[in-house]
């Protein structure tokens, strides 16, 4: 595979749900791609569509109406038969969720679960699968991995369960790891351990990671590139330093201004006023317009497309490049 061909490429992805109030598009026309060895972080507030989008990559959203293309090694996952998807899930594409309890079976030992996952995807004998299971548990830094093979999930702490889930996701040597808020439920100390672990594993295996989070601190530490989602759309996407050193979407700036300053010297925070729009009553024009302090007349009428501001840095805002526009004077 040549390095320029993305490992996964998503084109025009739409994920809709029928609800009593009408059809909602939880993900609305999203494009992005991830290369081998790259970590793409997807950041946004709750309800912005991060989980639905990442689960839909594996066709794991029941009752969703999905359209667009999800090209994995150039082949459209949306066009594959169900059994082929079962092979890919947990095989070439691994998953880690926020709540380990939803993906670990409470009545089966950790070891049996990992062995089963390996044997489901590869024709290896029991002994070889067990050896591999111990090996991946050891990789995740779980103390005495052999003994832990015999533990049930409830016997482990939150951090250890998360490690066990990572071990399971890694057991089949995935090319892509999708991690949905893998550390949100953990203490900062354990979070730091898990993030270190993910970084190390990526460096050693060369796998790509799609990391979903709402924490800009985690993004800054982990990502190579960042996509910011708002109300079902990607509003900004950029290499991580470009995003933090020169954000080009007002929503991204709003997220930063809501956080206490890094050195702790701010007196008041500037929150983003209001709240996310109801997916059944999206504003016309730019979806961020009702909350945007930089909005101009055009924003209420026309939806801004996601366009290149600088090479590799895309923003969906009529006023990008922001600093140039805003300091040119004569607004509105």
């Amino acid at each position: 595979m040549t390095p320029d061909v993305p490992l996964i490429e998503v084109r025009g992805l739409r994920v809709g749900f029928h609800t009593s109030g009408g059809t909602v598009a939880a993900v609305d026309d999203v494009d992005f791609s991830v290369r081998t060895g790259e970590t793409l972080a997807i950041v946004g507030e709750s309800g912005s569509g991060k989980s639905v989008m990442s689960l839909s990559l594996l066709r794991l959203v029941p009752s969703a109406i999905t359209s667009g293309e999800i090209l994995f090694h150039g082949e459209d996952l949306l066009a594959k038969p169900a059994h082929a998807m079962r092979d890919i899930r947990g095989g070439r594409i691994g998953m880690i969720f926020q709540e380990p309890n939803t993906s670990l079976n409470p009545v089966q030992t950790i070891g049996d679960q990992i062995v089963e996952a390996i044997q489901l995807h590869e024709a290896v004998g029991k002994a070889a699968a067990r050896a591999r299971a111990v090996e991946v548990l050891e990789l995740t830094g779980i103390p005495s991995p052999k003994a832990r093979m015999r533990s049930y999930p409830h016997e482990l702490s939150g951090g250890m369960r998360q490690r066990a889930m990572i071990a399971m996701a890694l057991a089949c040597r995935p090319e892509l790891l999708i991690a949905d808020e893998p550390t949100t439920a953990l203490d900062v100390t354990v979070q730091a351990q898990i993030l270190d672990l993910m970084r190390e594993l990526k460096a050693n295996s060369g796998a790509a990671i799609i990391l979903i989070t709402h924490d800009l601190g985690v993004v800054a530490e982990m990502a190579d590139r960042v996509a910011v989602m708002y109300a079902g759309r990607i509003v900004e996407i950029a290499p991580v330093t470009d995003l933090f050193d020169g954000p080009e979407h007002p929503y991204t700036i709003g997220l930063l201004s809501s956080m206490p300053s890094i050195d702790g010297d701010s007196d008041t925070l500037t929150p983003i006023e209001g709240s996310m729009p109801d997916p059944l009553a999206l504003p016309a024009g730019c979806r961020f317009q009702p909350r945007c302090p930089f909005a101009i007349k055009r924003c209420a009428v026309e939806a801004p497309p996601l366009e290149t501001v600088r090479p590799g840095h895309l923003s969906a805002c009529w006023r990008a490049p922001l600093l140039e526009t805003l300091t040119r004077g004569g607004q509105q």
Partner: peptide
């Protein structure tokens, strides 16, 4: 552990604009 100068400018513009619209 500080924002880049450009981000600091943008944050200041954001705060000012947010205060005005409030």
């Amino acid at each position: 552990a500080q924002h880049a100068p450009k981000t600091t400018r943008l944050l200041a513009l954001y705060r000012q604009a947010a205060a005005n619209s409030n």
